[in-house]
Design a protein around this nucleic acid. Structure first.
Lengths: 236, 236
DNA sequence: TCATGCGATTGGTATACTCCAATGCTGCGA
DNA sequence: TCGCAGCATTGGAGTATACCAATCGCATGA
């Protein structure tokens, strides 16, 4: 048996139906039929369909059947790096390094990163670009103790990929606030937009799986070239 | 049996442990122990724990056990009505009705609601308030065929609760885009902010469980009194 | 003293079975 | 022709059982 468990095979079979054979609102075979065709128990079928239902690929109506769901236009919001995000939008990510220096955390950043104000942090300021055009002005702060020698690496690419590959720091979740604002003249120049244009101010603290703060980022996004698209769901 | 099924009882029991008895990273009883104590089968326990794991209340390590997860600070972004949202922030929601009229959908709104441009829609414009202060200027469009007589109801409260209670229209998910903008003088007056202040422009199409568009809403939120706070997770 | 490996424990996967509850079709009767 | 009762179908919930796979502690031997 080269491929995974039965559930995995069932999943592939059903997904093939959903993606290639059927259209939205078409009815899938009944659970009992699937169990018979694929020679697995109905409970296994149900576990697979439970997952597909959670992933919003199908919906179920008791007494009626299981049906193919209308495909989503926008993905639900997930944690991605700027680089990933831009690649998904079909653009080539890049950045121009403005600042890369060692300093003490200070009260504000120290608070966010659970450090004392005197602890050393690495401060990186970059203009992030997509297809060469400025999109975002980003200040990142990383505890130096977690990433010694970070300043000697190439900081033009994805910071997260760097932290993951060189320091085994894997971002698992982030807390983020998003506000609307207007850009002041200095920042406007860096972003190549007129002064007082509309922009997003995004403040993010990133954590690893153990709940340790890894990074604080404070960014300014042009609103004319960047907006959020997301799908929201009713909780429970 | 006044309360729900066994799974529901098990869930309450385990949730009590997680919230009141144990601390983060403490070990829950094993699945077999829980099954014995609560006199249900292990499979029922597992279904409950599967759900709690998805909700990030617990985490599991094969061969080791199930453990209480570190509590989340901010909730992940979920679909809520303006009224719910404001109540969660500890404020009293309200609204001032500006417009409530019947009209034809037109090309743009028709497109979003999957109607032809001539189909009738109800257009409701309101200033949404929190503790009496304007927060958001909102234009809502609802297909009249789905909610006949909507205009005769009290439109000062939650529109979603109205649609749910009177027309069995239950919002299940929404696709939303968020942009940063500045408010023009007319809208600034309605929101009691200076002209050209920063604001969010939110455009949302809401769907029911079958994927039918139910509502289109185009809103303008003051940024000085409203911002997004959310927790993001790495996908898969 | 330290490493190795074995075995008990714990979650992961799969099966077969039973009964319940919502849906929706069919046909009968007014 | 219309409405409704009844029944087959379909997903929902629960049980008992078996075996697999990762983990961890303990005992044994170098």
């Amino acid at each position: 048996m080269p491929n995974g468990g039965k559930a995995e095979q069932v999943r592939r079979h059903v997904l093939h139906l959903v993606e290639a054979q059927l259209r939205p609102h078409d009815k899938l075979p009944t659970e009992r039929e699937l169990a018979g065709e694929l020679a697995v128990s109905r409970l296994t079928i149900r576990r697979v369909l439970d997952n597909l239902e959670r992933e919003r690929r199908v919906y179920r109506v008791q007494g009626a059947g299981t049906f193919v769901r209308e495909p989503q236009v926008a993905k639900s919001l997930e944690l991605t790096s700027f680089s990933e995000d831009m690649r998904q939008r079909g653009m080539v990510p890049g950045s121009r390094l403005l600042t890369a220096e060692r300093g003490s955390a200070g009260a504000h950043i120290g608070q966010e990163l659970a450090l004392s104000p005197a602890d050393p942090v690495v401060h990186i300021a970059r203009v992030r670009t997509a297809d060469g055009e400025p999109i975002c002005l980003e200040h990142s702060y990383i505890p130096e103790a977690l990433a010694p020698g970070l300043l000697d690496l190439d900081l033009e690419g994805s910071l997260y990929e760097l932290l993951s590959a060189h320091f085994r720091l894997h971002l698992e979740h982030a807390e983020q606030t998003i506000a609307a604002t207007v850009v002041d003249p200095d920042d406007a120049h860096l972003l190549s937009v007129p002064p007082f244009s509309a922009a997003f101010r995004v403040e993010r603290t990133g954590f690893d799986a153990r709940g340790r703060p890894i990074e604080r980022a404070e960014s300014l996004y042009r609103s004319d070239r960047y907006h959020y698209e997301l799908t929201l769901y009713r909780g429970q």
